[in-house]
């Protein structure tokens, strides 16, 4: 069973968002997403300072047999990216909600988080996908 922390918000395309305070959020992909992809071999991240709208492509996660786009679940400006992933993409597999985070974003509008799924909603969604 995949881990779905209750304090995070989720997108239908399997990204998670954690509000850090001061209108800053951290984004990554879920445990469920990383397990579907298998061992990641490369992570492409957005450039710092770019402004993205919720739903925009923000990068690509690549395993040996699949590549999947990452969409930002929230709008804002990219503040920082997880540089460690350049040489250690396996961090996303090993610790998707911790060391495997993808990018930090300065939110345009904190209320956007309300439109995302909570952990129960996301769990229901992936349970439905399995059938």
């Amino acid at each position: 069973m995949n881990h779905v922390p209750s304090e995070l918000r989720y997108s239908k395309s399997h990204e998670w968002v954690r509000l850090e305070g001061n209108g800053i959020a951290i984004v990554g992909i879920t445990d469920h997403a990383q397990s579907l992809l298998g061992d990641l071999v490369y992570v492409e991240l957005p450039e710092v300072d770019t402004s993205l709208k919720a739903g925009d492509e923000a990068g690509v996660v690549e395993s040996v047999k699949a590549a999947s786009d990452v969409y930002t679940p929230v709008s804002g400006e990219i503040l920082e990216i997880n540089e460690a992933l350049a040489t250690a993409p396996e961090l996303v597999n090993d610790d998707p909600y911790g060391h495997g985070w993808l990018f930090k974003i300065q939110l345009d509008d904190e209320n956007e988080l309300e439109e995302l799924l909570d952990s129960d909603g996301y769990e229901e969604m992936i349970a439905a996908d399995d059938h």
């Binding site: 071999v41 490369y42 690549e62 395993s63 040996v64 047999k65 699949a66 590549a67 786009d69």
Partner: peptide, 12 residues
């Protein structure tokens, strides 16, 4: 690096 190629990445 096959994930860049058409048989996996298709239109991308």
């Amino acid at each position: 690096l096959q994930a860049r190629e058409q048989h996996i990445r298709r239109s991308k």
